[in-house]
Structures are given as structure tokens and as C-alpha cells.
Design a binder for these strands. Structure first.
Lengths: 338, 338
DNA sequence: CTGAAAGCGCTTACAG
DNA sequence: CTGAAAGCGCTTACAG
């Protein structure tokens, strides 16, 4: 049988005071005699009192629920971001409501349409690849629910955003390949519509330009983010008249796919061919040759994103912030030159 | 400004009926005239009505929150389990409240102690490595809150449990090594206290026995679950008078650590030395040589665990089920023999 | 089949 | 500094 959990009334009865006073004593926001407060706190501890989140939320017009919308949780980057979000949310007494879109714009739209907005105090979102026309979010913000974008942001929408420094990371990655002697550097990019794809591509292009290398259109191939996409991209590159001698991949999974495909082609990565990724997925250190990459501050992105929604929720006054966190080049074997 | 979301009263007013009737019409559990129901449903859709979860929960003595306690979410197995849990929970209108213990019994105890049990309808848990003395859970069950264990279960507690077939998976893995000609097979195990560690170890031992091979105590080393632990374990094995020529690892991360350590020792895995893991982490296919392993049905474990708590919640009548899902041997390069 | 009413456990003006 | 009271948005016996 379900036991009865101590409520505010139990405390009030035990102490012979009104439950309104108990309520006030519990959150020290009001004037309550110090003595009274201590009695209440002691009794609450004794009875193992925990506030009923539903009642609290109902009375306060809050839910203490934070929605998190993201493409998937089964990869290093996203699971780490969630861990960061979770840490901050847990500390602040907020619950996370996960919505996994499977990187499908359609499913994303469905989920957003079915959102119980009345039961969500804020939203953390990383949009799906092809949700360029991410309507919906503006309406949510207009309703007064803070939305914070992370990683994959919607540029047109004015709200807080947290991302890694995609441009400079890509620039540094590309420059690293150039510094190691590679000259014909291709780019395996993500879906064109995504801002961070464009930013990483721009970093790549600008690094080439800075060093007087031509930007060849056929050496930039766009596709999805999976390992299989990375393999396919190499196949496409291999149809070019002039083949590249290095590749900067938009993420590690694609870099891994590329390396596997290159192995099939008997290309020696780290000697004849350079590869640099982006993320610093643990697999980067395990694959052979190990993968040079830009480490992303995934945990920090999660923490800061969550801190931002919480502060927006508390302040009501909404001043959007854009946070850009630096990445870090991790040099391994895949970018060496024979 | 936060907009007002449509409530049951808005629907009632628009239709000139009582809000009690609206409430009934919305959940078709009661006798409501078909005509009335349709009017209500239509108006609800028109007003984009979503029930307020807090109010619903408060009135029903439910929270529609499910707690999920697990060691970490940043690895393939757990993130996949969560995805399975999430899918079922989402479909049933339940929210997930994540508690990440970082595989620390202390943190686990803290979190359990601070649980707002009044706001949780059920609990899905995978205990931390050293929480042998997992008190706390029995009390929660006694309070009437269903608890389902998955993967790492507490044997002494009578409640539903969902695990992969650890014993047979281990048996098959070990037999596979034997079949491929390895004779001196060590086992890199997990913490001794965990049931699944013991089950996998037993499968390993029994396979050896079946084939008339001796079980050597010094060839069984226990430690944690990380890649680094796998590396250390190999170092320990290498101090044995007789060195093994193969190893069955309790999971893929340790297998990967072992392979890396063996590489340092200039041992050729897949030729002089066999390695088999457990999980089928994507890294198993990426590492070179690729890793033979037992694929775990992680997504299914998540789905079924969640279905079980939900059915316990609904039925109130608590009949514990123990579900064991089969794994599958995936043969790759690491277990070949020269 | 439907309405009026009480209640879930809290918060928060309003008095005093 | 504290109490009485209304209310948050729902559910659910109780009548009829």
C-alpha cells in the first residue's frame, strides 16, 4: 500500500501553527520568526518532508520541468551535453523531460506540436538536421517560455544560444593540416542548412585562403552526420578528377567513416593522407591511426545552456545571450605526414 | 508575457456545459453521451487544450514522473537503454527524471535519500558498482512505489528485473574462443559484488569446464568497467607465471583497453591472442582488429523495463517478473587465430 | 448521462 | 510575525 508522505499540514499540526506559516518558513523568502523557522525545519527533517512538486507547481504556475529536445542521445556529444544539463537541473530541483527527435524534422514538428507547454518552464533545444523551417519555436518564446538553443541553433530566432567555436575550431583544424604539409584538403561537411555546418565550412575555407590554397567546390561534400555518410563522402571525393590528400570532417563520426573507407582504398591515413575530425569522441583515441580532432566542450555546453534557461525563467526579463565556447586541437596520428 | 493556456473551464464555457463533464469526456472512461464527447473533443482540439500535468497529478495522486537511476549516460549501452525507456515513457505520457550516480555508491545513496517519492510514480534503476548494501530500495518498494531493476540488479530484493542473458552470453563467448583454438583463456571481470559480473564469470568457467580446460584463479582479474581498467588488468595478467593466450572481457570497454595494452606489448590480437568482449558498442566495429563480442539488446532492455514499471503502476497488484533477453555473438577479427 | 461540490498539497495576497 | 481564505486545474464520489 502506498504510504502517506508527510505534508505541510502534518508539520503544522505537530507544531500547532498554521500551515501557511509552515509554507513560509520552508522557503525563507518571508518574514518568519527565526525560532518558528527552526522548529519547522527541524520537524520537516524529522518527518522527512519533501514538497509535493505537483502542488507546488500548480500553485506557483510552474512545473519545475525543463524540456530537452535533441536529435539523439546515443552518441558521445549529446550524452555528455545531457549530463551537463542534468547536473545543473538536479541541483536546482528541476526535472528533465527528454524529447528525442531521431534527427527527423517531421518527428520534431510533431513533438513540438504536442508539447504540454503549460507543464514546461523552459526548453533546451538542438534542432534536427533538416528543420531549417523551424517554425514553432518562435511561438513558444512568444508564449513566454524561455528557449535556449545549443549546438544546432536557429539563426533567425532571437534567444539565447550556446555553441562551441565552430569557425575557429575548423580554421585551426585546417591550418593544422596545412602546417603538416597537406595541400589538397577536402571538407566532408554536414547538411548545408545548419548554421554550425556553415561556420565550420567557413573556417575551413578561410584557412585555405589565408595560406593561398584554392577552395575547390568539388572538394566540399555535404551529407548527414553518420559514420556511413563519412564513408559515402569519400567515395564521392574519389570520383573527382584530382583527388585530395587530406580531409577535414565536420565531426568525428564522419571522420571515422572516412578513415574506414580510405582503408578499403589502401590509402595510408597519417602518411599519404591526413584526416582531422571535430568532437573528440572517445573513439578518436581508439581508432588506428588515432584521430586528430577538435575537442568540443560538450559538458560545459550542457551546463551553461541549463544555467541560461534557469536564469531566464527566474528573471522573466529575457535578455538573450550568445555563448561561444572554445574548442581545442588534439593532435594525434591521423594528421601526420610520412 | 506568459499566455494563458486553455483549461477545462474554457472548454466548458465555450460549450455551456459543466467542466466535470468536460473532464469526463476527455478521458473516455466514463459514460458520456457520444455527441457531447465529440463536441468536447472538437473544442479541445480547436483551443489546443493540453491537460495540466500538475493538476492532473495532484488530483490523481500521481505525478506522471518516472525516476531513472543509473551510473552514467555517456556510454553506448546506457544511452541506448535510456532511448528505449524514453520511447515507451513518451508514448504513455510519462516524464523521465534522470539521476546520474557517476557509479558512486555514496552519491547513489544521497540521491535516493533525497528522492521526492511523493512525486515519482515508479523507479527504473541500475545500481552503482559498489552498492552491494543497496538499502533504500526495499523501503521504496514498501512505500508502494514500483521499482524495476535493469542490467545491474539487486538480487536480494524481490521486484521486477530485466537483464541480458549474461550467463549464456559469456558461455558462448568463451566457447567461441575455445572453438577457434585458444586454450589459455583469461577473464577480465567486473566488480565481484555485482550479480551480472558473477553470472558472466560463471558462464566463462562453465565453458572452460565443459571443454576440459582448467579454471585458473590467477587468470580471473576483477576491477572496474572502464577502458583504463582493461589496460590495468592486462598488466596484471602479464605478471602471471603462465600467460594466457586469450581473454574474455566482461564488457567492450575493458576489451578495448586490453587490446590497447596488448598492442603496447606487441601482441598480435586476432592471431597470437584472442579477445572477446560484451556489449557490441559501435567502437567494436571500428577498432582494429575489430572486436568479437556479444551484442546486448540494450534498447529492448530499456523498453521492457519501462513497460514493466508502467504495468506495475497501473495494476497496483505487484507481481514481479524477471526478464532475461538473449544476446548474440558477433564474430569479428579479434578472435581469429593465425 | 450530467451537475454541484469537495479535495489533492501547496502559495500568496489580505488582514491583523 | 502569523492566520484565515481563496485559488491553482484537475478528478471523482455523490446525487439526480
Amino acid at each position: 500500500m502506498r504510504r502517506h508522505y508527510a505534508t505541510i499540514k502534518d508539520i503544522a499540526n505537530a507544531l500547532n501553527i498554521s500551515f501557511a506559516t509552515v509554507s513560509r518558513a520552508l522557503r525563507d523568502a518571508y518574514d518568519v520568526k527565526a525560532e518558528t523557522r527552526e522548529l519547522v525545519l527541524a520537524k520537516a527533517a524529522e518527518l522527512n518532508y519533501k514538497p509535493n512538486v505537483n502542488a507546488k507547481g500548480l500553485a506557483q504556475h510552474r512545473s519545475y520541468n525543463l524540456g530537452v529536445i535533441l536529435p539523439t542521445i546515443t552518441n558521445y556529444y549529446f550524452s555528455t551535453v545531457i549530463t551537463g544539463i542534468q547536473e545543473v537541473a538536479y541541483g536546482a530541483g528541476y526535472n528533465l523531460v527528454l524529447y528525442v527527435t531521431n534527427d527527423s524534422a517531421e518527428r520534431e514538428r510533431d513533438m513540438i506540436g504536442n508539447l504540454s507547454l503549460g507543464s514546461l518552464d523552459g526548453l533546451l533545444v538542438c534542432v534536427s538536421s533538416d528543420s531549417a523551417l523551424s517554425t514553432g519555436f518562435q511561438g513558444i518564446i512568444d508564449d513566454g517560455i524561455p528557449v535556449v538553443f545549443f549546438d544546432r541553433v536557429v539563426e533567425d530566432i532571437h534567444t539565447s544560444k550556446v555553441v562551441q567555436d565552430d569557425y575557429n575550431g575548423a580554421f585551426e583544424a585546417t591550418e593544422h593540416l596545412i602546417g603538416n604539409g597537406y595541400r589538397n584538403i577536402a571538407h566532408i561537411a554536414g547538411p548545408e542548412e545548419l548554421a554550425f555546418t556553415r561556420n565550420r565550412m567557413q573556417g575551413y575555407k578561410d584557412a585555405l585562403k589565408k595560406h593561398g590554397l584554392p577552395v575547390k567546390k568539388e572538394w566540399i561534400v555535404h551529407s548527414g552526420f553518420s559514420q556511413a555518410h563519412g564513408e559515402q563522402d569519400v567515395a564521392r571525393l574519389w570520383k573527382c578528377r584530382q583527388k585530395p590528400d587530406a580531409v577535414f570532417a565536420v565531426n568525428d563520426r564522419k571522420a571515422v567513416g572516412a578513415m574506414l573507407a580510405l582503408k578499403q582504398l589502401n590509402i595510408l591515413v597519417g602518411q599519404d593522407f591526413g584526416v582531422v575530425g571535430f568532437t573528440n569522441d572517445p573513439v578518436a583515441a581508439i581508432i588506428s591511426p588515432s584521430l586528430t580532432t577538435i575537442a568540443e566542450p560538450a559538458f560545459e555546453i550542457g551546463r551553461i545552456s541549463c544555467q541560461l534557461v534557469l536564469s531566464h525563467i527566474r528573471k522573466k526579463k529575457f535578455d538573450a545571450k550568445e555563448v561561444v565556447l572554445p574548442g581545442k586541437l588534439i593532435v594525434r596520428e591521423s594528421s601526420k605526414k610520412a
